[in-house]
Amino acid sequence: MTIETGRPGIDGLGDVVRLLGEWQREGEPVQLHPGDLGWFWRFGPGRTAAATLTWSRAGQVVAAGLLDGADLLRLAFAPGAAQDEELARRVAGDVSEPARGVLPEGRAYVESPPGALVRDLLLKDGWAADDPWTVLGRDLGAPVPDPGVHVEAVGPEQAPEWAAVIRASFDGSTFTEERWHAMAAGVPYAGARCLLARDDQGAAVAAVAVWSAGAGRPGLIEPMGVHRDHRGRGHGRAITVAAARALREAGSSSVLVCCPSSNAGAVATYRSAGLERLTERHDVSRHPS
């Protein structure tokens, strides 16, 4: 049957979030997570809908993607669909031909789960492996220790502080209180929580958002940041431990996070919080000469 490419629109985003949650499986390759849409929702439902794509067969969605920026498509596949040749060829064609309106001409990137056939097809078509990312995770079957610092759940009252820590954690960040409210109003946030860590003086020093895919499924950290004025004091480790505790309370089977392998400090922070390095992965990229 023919594969159809579509966009769900604002009204269909809830169905995509639900499917992405159902597609998260322990022991399976890490792929686009409901939390990725949840974090993108900071730009509002309209932009999120415009950035979301689906691929369907006979009316059933078998793959979904998020345009995380104009030139990066992040993918997820229904169980058993990552090696579907008809689907892989349709997705590869969509991302390779700018006229189809998925990725623009020139430099572009595709993130797909390891082992997905679409990756092999793109590499054969001249795309190349890009810079490595490290995937880290921690099983949540056993209790998680206390983080050792004051950590509080963030609501509207703490939103300005949470936003300020995120801005102070990432160079060039434009995150605002308004974007926190937009994110918190999104469908994926029903299974999410934002946390804020404070030091002994009460200053907000670290922030994290955690996203559930449902009970018994892997949860996601996105983002985690430590205020640039408070680094080197263990706050990153503490807020990551708190994130794991929050996901365990939500019923998640494990906690996952991805970060550039070149960010050795972030990798070390996650490992200090009990996350193990699971694998290293590469997006594929097109770099026209």
Rank of each mutant, 00 (worst) to 15 (best):
K124C: 13
D125F: 04
G126R: 05
G126I: 02
D130W: 01
W133D: 11
V135I: 15
V135S: 08
L136S: 08
D139P: 05
D139N: 11
L140M: 14
A142C: 09
A142L: 14
P143R: 09
V144A: 12
V144G: 09
D146K: 11
D146G: 09
D146L: 07
V151W: 01
A153M: 06
A153G: 12
V154G: 12
P156R: 13
E157L: 15
W162V: 11
R167D: 09
R167A: 13
A168V: 11
A168Y: 09
S169C: 15
F170R: 03
F170E: 07
D171P: 09
G172A: 11
T174G: 14
T174L: 12
F175T: 03
F175P: 05
F175K: 00
T176G: 01
T176P: 00
T176Y: 02
T176N: 01
E178M: 04
W180D: 00
H181E: 11
H181W: 09
A182R: 14
A184K: 02
A184N: 05
A185H: 03
V187N: 01
A190S: 13
A190I: 05
G191V: 10
G191Y: 02
C194Y: 05
L196G: 04
G202R: 00
A204K: 04
V205A: 04
V208A: 11
A209E: 05
V210E: 03
V210Y: 02
S212N: 07
A213M: 05
G214A: 02
A215V: 15
A215C: 14
P218W: 02
L220M: 14
I221L: 14
P223E: 12
G225E: 10
